[in-house]
Amino acid sequence: MNKMKALLWREYMLGRKKILFSLIAFAMTTVLGWLALISIKHGNLETALKNVDGEFPGMTKVLDELLYYAAMYVPAFMSIMMTDENGAVSSDLKSGWKLFGRTLPVTAAESLGAKYILKVISIAAVFLVNMGNFAVVSLLADKEITAFHVNALLLLINISLLSGLVKDAVLYRAKTEKETFFAEIASIAVFVILCIPYFRRLNRNVSGIAANDNLQSLFKMMGVMADDMKRIFPFMLPAMLVLMAGGYFLHLMIVRRAEK
């Protein structure tokens, strides 16, 4: 128990700066989101955008809706940065702690376990602070938090976990432990490859709409995306568990292979 506490504390100290940076980015984007929402409801944005009839013209009709989502998910994206454990792994390699750690009465599973426990704690913290933000944002926008919002947050977290898993898979395949530029590119490439057919399908869905009606196209696309997301929502929590466990075991395999 003492050992795990010490390892956890060490991991926290290593990731402290990243956590702080992530929290500052979260706080800044959160406050900006709140201010923008207040402004579009009762402030300068409302005055500036509404026409003489007291209505939002053209694309600005959806601005409050876009601001509502941005105020929830931009801070969420910022806070998710704190959950990445790859920085701590690289730091151990660079400093020589990884080799030194093998001389201590600590197994690779314990050492990596501490990183993943901190990751789980970070994910829980990310979830809680974002739910708090969602509540305030919904209050400011006169809307209700729905299961959709919660699941969309889980989806964002899962995308971040998947990105880490792809990076680890590339490192495993490349028979290295060091986080490389190539692994970063690969994780982005996987998402691009997955997204291209999806956006093609979205495009086909709006092909019947007149080319100059951007607003209708946007609504249609958002509707299709929301329907698609709803279909995968039941799998969000199990997927998170699988991605976490997959990441841990893949990482452990990388560490153990490097030890040979």
Binding site: N2, K3, M4, K5, A6, L7, W9, R10, L104, P105
Partner: peptide, 8 residues
């Protein structure tokens, strides 16, 4: 010292 106290 804090780390090694837990490990050893």
């Amino acid at each position: 010292a804090k780390i090694f106290k837990g490990i050893y």
